[in-house]
């Protein structure tokens, strides 16, 4: 299938571009519906769209160009020439936050957290569509080959032909990611409908929890699936040859995801009441244990690839434990005495 959907003179529109655009449009309309259905101003959503599209593209591109610089003739060439190359998805997701802040500072008094809550399910959908857009390019992006015949099928694996004509089935990282992100969209939407305005203990606010928990789950998904990618964005210890060999690959995405999850964890730590403190050790144990386990499995999976399945599953459980730690933090912050909003 051709990657080109249409050509208008010098403008080439690709199927993947259309998929991404559809993801944005659908995500925005979903956010618009949610926000206006809960007495929000729809115009604020349009403003977020205007304020975030260009910064999202630039932010996701900057990180990609900085860490894949050799693929471009120069920093600005990489930044402005979109004929080829990739984008760092978390960069696109995270720019919604400054966009929402900007709206409060310059245009409307809408609470950024309220806006971000409405945007969260749509953003998960958009991220899933970005991953799905890979159907028009290289779909696997994975370093692993699927050897079990039962799993040699869409959406778990995609077929590639080796130079000697042999069919090789690669794990389809992006399809699996897309499916998980669509599931995340449904979870986020359900959570928004049921709990987006639950009262919280001070100083936590009642808004922003949908966005935070969606971000945490997004990070959990990326943390694990990024480990299976062959083309991930990694730190390179140019000046430290020893570290370059010893550390192998340190993924920017995994660092970002861990930091975001930690920030959410710290946020909920500040507003846990006396009941919450009793659970402090449990949720921090979950989070800390999950973090250590995720790090260990990442180090091991780069060295003992024959155990990739086992280690990836362990990493998934670790990421879930981290997410569960944050969720317990959220539960501890809920104001149960004034539970109903």
């Amino acid at each position: 299938m051709s990657s080109t959907a249409a050509v208008f003179g010098s403008i080439r529109i690709t199927w993947s571009g259309l998929t991404v655009a559809f993801g944005i449009l659908a995500g925005v309309l979903l956010a618009y519906s949610l926000y206006t259905a809960h007495s929000g101003r729809g115009k604020a959503i349009w403003l977020v769209l205007c304020f975030s599209v260009i910064p999202s593209v630039l932010a996701s591109r900057i990180v990609y160009v900085v860490f894949h610089g050799v693929e471009y003739s120069g920093f600005f060439a990489g930044l402005l020439d979109y004929s080829d190359g990739g984008f760092w998805l978390p960069g696109a997701v995270i720019t919604l936050w400054p966009a929402a802040l900007l709206i409060k500072k310059t245009a409307l008094p809408d609470e950024p957290e309220e806006l971000l809550d409405a945007l969260a399910p749509g953003t998960a959908f958009f991220a899933g569509m970005v991953r799905l857009s890979a159907v028009f390019g290289n779909t696997c992006r994975s370093m692993y080959v699927v050897s079990a015949p039962a799993f040699r099928h869409f959406p778990v694996a995609v077929k590639m032909l080796s130079a000697d004509g042999q069919a090789v089935w690669h794990f389809a990282t992006f399809y699996v990611s897309a499916l998980l992100l669509f599931a995340l969209m449904i979870a986020s939407l359900t959570f928004y409908i049921l709990h987006h305005a639950d009262k919280m203990k001070k100083p936590c606010t009642r808004h922003g929890n949908v966005a935070r928990l969606t971000l945490v789950l997004f990070c959990a998904v990326e943390l694990v699936l990024d480990s299976t990618r062959a083309d991930r964005t990694v730190l390179s210890f140019h000046l430290l040859r020893f570290l370059n060999r010893q550390m192998r690959e340190v993924s920017i995405t995994q660092i970002f995801c861990t930091v975001m999850m930690l920030l959410c964890m710290l946020y909920y730590s500040k507003c846990t009441g006396s009941k919450g403190k009793k659970r402090l050790s449990v949720r921090w144990l979950l989070f800390g244990g999950g973090f250590l386990c995720a790090m260990t499995t990442e180090v091991l999976v780069q060295r003992y690839t024959e155990y990739a399945l086992l280690l990836t599953l362990a990493q998934a459980l670790s990421a879930l434990a981290m997410a569960a730690g944050v969720f317990l933090g959220y539960l501890a912050c809920r104001d149960r005495e004034n539970y109903s909003s």
């Binding site: 990657s3 403008i11 080439r12 529109i13 690709t14 993947s16 571009g17 259309l18 991404v20 655009a21 944005i24 599209v53 593209v57 979109y82 004929s83 080829d84 190359g85 990739g86 984008f87 970005v130 857009s133 890979a134 028009f136 390019g137 290289n138 083309d231």
Partner: peptide, 11 residues
């Protein structure tokens, strides 16, 4: 604009 310019890793 995104539809025209953003096509991650396609070409």
């Amino acid at each position: 604009w995104v539809a025209v310019h953003v096509h991650p890793g396609t070409s």
